[in-house]
Computed example of a mutant assay.
Amino acid sequence: MSTPTPATTPKTTSPSPATSGSALESTQGKTTIADGVVAKIAGLAAREVHGVYGFGSGAARAFGALTERIPGGRSSSTQGVSVEVGERQAAVDLTIVVEYGVGIAELARAIRRNVIGAVEQMTGLDVVEVNVNVVDLHLPSEDDGDDAPAPEPTPARVR
């Protein structure tokens, strides 16, 4: 028996979908995931990281606060999150507000780990980058008082 020479070995010009390495393609069909789905996953995963106070610019946060107060309104889990989704890869951009006292470099690493893990596990997409844009720092004295207890009423003076 002779071994086949390279000239007699069959060659394939492109990988078949079943062997392309993507969990989203098979011989039985193709799965596509909308940008909004990936943005929600990324936003929720980033919110889980301690030290993230909020998302988006000041104007976006103010608009979000108004939306939450309208009956039937709800906060957006994609505020401050933008994504680009391809057939096999995704890139995520986050615009965040950081709690004062938190190390920003370590926070960004933790956000990247959490977002990449969640998006890749839930979607099968390869996350090629997670950009973290810190636009503000939240100081404890800046709380708007919504969570603070109402002040005690001052007793009326008797004359």
Results as ranks from 00 to 15, higher is better:
residue 2 S to G: 08
residue 4 P to D: 07
residue 5 T to V: 07
residue 5 T to A: 10
residue 5 T to P: 00
residue 6 P to A: 08
residue 7 A to Q: 13
residue 8 T to R: 03
residue 11 K to M: 11
residue 12 T to R: 12
residue 15 P to W: 06
residue 15 P to S: 09
residue 16 S to K: 10
residue 16 S to D: 12
residue 16 S to M: 07
residue 17 P to R: 14
residue 18 A to S: 11
residue 19 T to I: 06
residue 20 S to M: 03
residue 21 G to S: 03
residue 22 S to M: 02
residue 23 A to G: 11
residue 24 L to D: 08
residue 25 E to W: 05
residue 25 E to H: 09
residue 25 E to D: 11
residue 26 S to D: 13
residue 28 Q to M: 04
residue 28 Q to H: 09
residue 31 T to P: 06
residue 31 T to W: 15
residue 32 T to D: 10
residue 32 T to I: 05
residue 32 T to E: 13
residue 33 I to D: 08
residue 34 A to P: 06
residue 37 V to Q: 07
residue 38 V to R: 05
residue 39 A to C: 06
residue 39 A to W: 09
residue 41 I to F: 10
residue 43 G to P: 07
residue 44 L to P: 04
residue 44 L to G: 12
residue 45 A to L: 04
residue 45 A to R: 02
residue 47 R to K: 14
residue 47 R to Y: 09
residue 49 V to N: 03
residue 51 G to M: 04
residue 51 G to R: 04
residue 51 G to C: 07
residue 52 V to M: 05
residue 52 V to A: 03
residue 53 Y to G: 02
residue 56 G to F: 00
residue 56 G to A: 02
residue 57 S to V: 07
residue 58 G to R: 13
residue 59 A to I: 10
residue 59 A to K: 13
residue 61 R to K: 01
residue 69 R to Y: 08
residue 69 R to N: 12
residue 70 I to P: 01
residue 71 P to I: 04
residue 72 G to T: 02
residue 73 G to K: 05
residue 75 S to Y: 09
residue 76 S to I: 02
residue 78 T to V: 14
residue 78 T to C: 02
residue 78 T to D: 03
residue 81 V to K: 00
residue 83 V to T: 13
residue 87 E to I: 03
residue 88 R to E: 10
residue 89 Q to H: 14
residue 89 Q to P: 01
residue 89 Q to V: 11
residue 90 A to E: 02
residue 91 A to E: 00
residue 91 A to F: 00
residue 92 V to Y: 01
residue 94 L to G: 00
residue 95 T to S: 14
residue 95 T to H: 14
residue 97 V to Y: 04
residue 97 V to M: 13
residue 98 V to W: 13
residue 98 V to M: 13
residue 99 E to K: 15
residue 99 E to D: 14
residue 99 E to L: 12
residue 101 G to T: 08
residue 101 G to Q: 07
residue 102 V to K: 15
residue 102 V to D: 09
residue 103 G to A: 13
residue 103 G to E: 12
residue 104 I to P: 04
residue 104 I to F: 08
residue 104 I to L: 07
residue 106 E to M: 05
residue 106 E to H: 10
residue 106 E to R: 14
residue 107 L to M: 07
residue 107 L to Y: 10
residue 107 L to D: 08
residue 108 A to Q: 06
residue 108 A to V: 06
residue 108 A to I: 06
residue 109 R to V: 04
residue 109 R to M: 05
residue 111 I to T: 06
residue 112 R to G: 05
residue 113 R to H: 12
residue 113 R to V: 08
residue 114 N to C: 02
residue 117 G to N: 13
residue 117 G to A: 14
residue 118 A to N: 11
residue 118 A to Y: 09
residue 119 V to Q: 09
residue 119 V to W: 12
residue 123 T to G: 00
residue 125 L to P: 00
residue 125 L to N: 02
residue 126 D to L: 13
residue 127 V to P: 00
residue 127 V to S: 00
residue 128 V to C: 01
residue 129 E to G: 06
residue 129 E to Y: 01
residue 131 N to D: 12
residue 132 V to C: 01
residue 132 V to S: 00
residue 133 N to S: 14
residue 133 N to G: 04
residue 134 V to D: 04
residue 135 V to D: 10
residue 135 V to S: 08
residue 138 H to G: 01
residue 140 P to A: 04
residue 140 P to T: 06
residue 140 P to Q: 06
residue 141 S to M: 11
residue 144 D to V: 03
residue 146 D to E: 15
residue 152 E to M: 10
residue 154 T to Y: 10
residue 154 T to V: 15
residue 155 P to Q: 12
residue 155 P to Y: 12
residue 156 A to D: 12
residue 157 R to M: 05
residue 157 R to Y: 07
